[in-house]
């Protein structure tokens, strides 16, 4: 049912697109018809695949490192007051700088390879992951914190070990649904970093390919690249969303309020 809905929506959009090009008689360098885009996609298959791999790698590495740094930061901010007081305001301030503005700097410092794109991705991904996880960690029900503290009083262990166990058994599991929300947001915006990085300066990648296609008025190739990029981003999102749902089966999910029946 879900698949049919998606197919109908996509088919409808393509139909409208096709109608627009026919009715308005737009030249193909302004808006190529869907069939022309498909043709370009098949014709440039090898080229697009090569550049897609670069972009996919950048997105995945950015997501991995940005996510890891985000999680570690959230844990440190939540557990240690000095980090919370000194470093956290800095992190929030850093988000006021547009990533687009520092992209040229990153390319200047890190070169034309994939490094500046991964860093761009990290910067974009880091924040939603940190904030999501931190919100979850800060929302441990107070009654549970009290109970855990009382239970730990009869132990003989050090403060650090008790803190570690509190996080391991109570706080982190409680925060996982929030972390999952942060990761979902991060996954959806992850391709931005890679593509912006490629626009500023790159030797390969879908953003690079699109820029060149645009300059040579190969609008059909540009659309084909865009299509592949969207497909990559959407499948990555659904893959991550599926994995997160599988990993957190106990997470309360009441679905949407307007649905008469619960769908899983």
């Amino acid at each position: 049912m879900k698949a049919i809905r998606i197919l109908i929506t996509l088919g409808g959009l393509i139909l409208i697109w096709d109608l627009i090009t026919r009715l308005l008689g737009l030249p193909k360098f302004i808006l190529p018809a869907p069939l022309l885009v498909l043709e370009a996609l098949i014709h440039h298959m090898g080229l697009i695949a090569h550049h897609s791999l670069t972009t996919a790698l950048e997105i995945l590495l950015g997501l991995l490192f940005g996510g890891l740094f985000g999680m570690i930061s959230a844990l440190l901010i939540s557990a240690y007051a000095p980090v919370r007081q000194w470093v956290f305001p800095l992190l929030i301030g850093s988000q006021a700088i547009p990533v687009f503005a520092i992209a040229p700097l990153l390319v200047l410092w890190l070169g034309y390879g994939i490094a500046p794109k991964v860093v761009m991705g990290m910067i974009i991904i880091y924040f939603p992951v940190t904030v999501g996880f931190l919100d979850g960690l800060n929302r441990t029900p107070p009654a549970w914190r009290d109970l855990a503290r009382l239970m730990q009083q009869s132990g003989q262990r050090s403060r650090f070990q008790n803190l570690y166990r509190l996080y391991r058994h109570v706080k982190i599991p409680f925060a996982l649904p929030s972390l999952a929300s942060g990761i979902r947001v991060a996954t959806a915006i992850a391709p931005i970093g890679a593509v912006v990085g490629e626009w500023v300066g790159a030797s390969s990648g879908l953003g690079y390919l699109m820029l060149h296609a645009n300059a040579r008025v190969q609008t059909d190739l540009m659309f084909a690249s865009l299509l592949v990029l969207s497909l990559m981003a959407v499948s990555l999102y659904f893959l991550v969303d599926y994995a997160l749902r599988r990993a957190l089966p106990w997470q309360p999910d009441t679905g949407h309020d307007d649905s008469s029946q619960r769908s899983l």
């Binding site: 855990a148 239970m151 730990q152 009869s154 132990g155 262990r157 070990q161 008790n162 166990r165 509190l166 058994h169 109570v170």
Partner: peptide, 8 residues
Amino acid sequence: IGARLRGE
């Protein structure tokens, strides 16, 4: 869970 929190 009490024992887990105490590492016992």
